[in-house]
Each structure stands twice: as structure tokens, then as C-alpha cells.
Deep mutational scan, measured.
Amino acid sequence: TETRTFDSEEEAKKAQKEAEKQGRTVTITRRDDRWEVRFD
């Protein structure tokens, strides 16, 4: 599991799309003013 933090939802969604192309499961969580993206 890898976790990355982004400043914008746009960036988080971009990372999510990339990871899903690779067949990974992605979870996006809102953390205050940041977006946390978890790759499984």
C-alpha cells in the first residue's frame, strides 16, 4: 500500500486514473485542505 497526498482534487483524480489503468485499487480521502490517495 502506498499513500500520497495532493493539494488539489484534480491532482488526486489524475493519480487515481493512472493507478486504475495499472489495475490498482485507489481510495481518495479528504484530509482538511489536502487530498490523500491510497494505492492498494
Rank of each mutant, 00 (worst) to 15 (best):
R31A: 06
Q16V: 14
Q22V: 10
T27D: 03
S8Q: 04
T27F: 04
I28G: 00
R30Q: 10
G23F: 04
S8H: 05
R38F: 06
Q22E: 13
D32L: 08
E36M: 05
K21G: 13
V37S: 01
E10K: 07
D32P: 04
R4W: 15
D33G: 15
A12L: 03
T5D: 05
F39T: 07
T25Q: 10
E11K: 06
E18T: 07
T3K: 07
T29R: 09
G23C: 07
G23S: 03
K14E: 13
E18A: 10
T27I: 11
T29N: 07
E20M: 13
W35L: 02
V26T: 09
T3S: 08
F6P: 00
D32V: 06
E9V: 06
T5H: 09
F39P: 05
R24M: 15
S8N: 10
R31M: 10
K13M: 14
K13A: 08
D33L: 03
D33V: 03
T3H: 08
E2D: 09
G23L: 03
S8R: 05
A15G: 02
T25E: 06
R34E: 06
D33S: 06
T1E: 11
E9A: 04
E36Q: 04
T29S: 09
T5W: 15
Q22H: 12
K14R: 12
T25K: 13
T27L: 04
D32S: 07
K17P: 01
R4F: 13
R24E: 04
S8V: 04
E10V: 08
T25D: 04
D33Q: 07
R30A: 06
R34W: 10
E9N: 02
D7R: 07
K17L: 14
E20I: 10
Q16M: 15
I28V: 10
E20P: 01
V37I: 08
R24H: 12
D40Y: 10
T29L: 08
R38A: 10
S8E: 03
T25P: 06
T25H: 14
E36D: 05
R24N: 05
A12Q: 00
I28K: 01
F6V: 03
S8I: 04
V26R: 00
K14A: 15
R38G: 05
R38E: 09
E36I: 12
V37P: 01
K13G: 05
T3C: 14
K17E: 14
R34Y: 14
E11F: 03
E11L: 06
A15V: 11
F6A: 01
R24F: 15
R30N: 06
D7K: 08
R4D: 03
T25V: 13
D32G: 15
V37M: 05
Q16A: 15
E20Q: 11
E10D: 09
K21W: 08
F6M: 02
E20L: 14
D7H: 08
E10C: 12
I28E: 00
D7T: 09
K13N: 08
W35Y: 05
K21Q: 13
R24W: 14
G23I: 01
K13F: 14
W35Q: 00
V26A: 15
S8Y: 03
V37C: 04
A12V: 04
R31F: 09
Q22F: 10
F39H: 04
A12Y: 02
G23E: 02
T25F: 07
T1M: 13
R4A: 08
K13P: 00
T3G: 05
T27Y: 04
Q16C: 12
V26D: 00
A12T: 02
D7V: 07
E20Y: 08
A19I: 07
Q22M: 14
F39Y: 13
E20A: 11
V37H: 00
E9T: 01
E36K: 02
I28A: 01
E36F: 07
T1A: 13
D7W: 14
V26Y: 02
S8M: 03
T5Q: 08
Q16I: 12
F39V: 11
K17T: 11
I28D: 00
D32M: 08
F6Q: 00
E11N: 04
R4C: 11
T27W: 04
V37L: 10
V37G: 02
E36W: 04
A12S: 02
